[in-house]
Amino acid sequence: MTPDDLYYSKEHEWLRLEGDGSATIGITDHAQQELGDIVYVELPDPGSALEADDVMGSVESVKAVSEIFSPVAGTVTAVNDALEDAPEVVNSDPYGDGWLIRLRLDDAGSPAATMLSAADYDKHVASEAD
């Protein structure tokens, strides 16, 4: 199930508003399934400034490398260091312990204008499969 309380990008990232002007970002369950077994996660340095759609890192599976785009603008405040030794957590818990970065949003407004709801993301995934 795609969690209802998150925002989604067409590039298969999710974003959770933390209510304090920051947001947590990861990749969706669909994305981790498509990638397969993840063996390496490359993340930005804390303090990095990201624009919307900037490449913020990459996720590599045994089969392929996939770039991760920041769906919004902000400054990175934390990255999930645990993935350095256990990248497979992105596969097993993509919406929880497999989060990638946290950032302070440049624009405290809702990302709803540029991102998708869970229902619309599911439709987007279904349309890609056609």
């Binding site: 397969g36 077994d37 063996v39 599976s61 045994v62 089969k63 497979e88």
Partner: peptide, 9 residues
């Protein structure tokens, strides 16, 4: 088939 259960397993 590139994989069934997963490449690593």
């Amino acid at each position: 088939p590139v994989q069934f259960a997963g490449v690593v397993s």
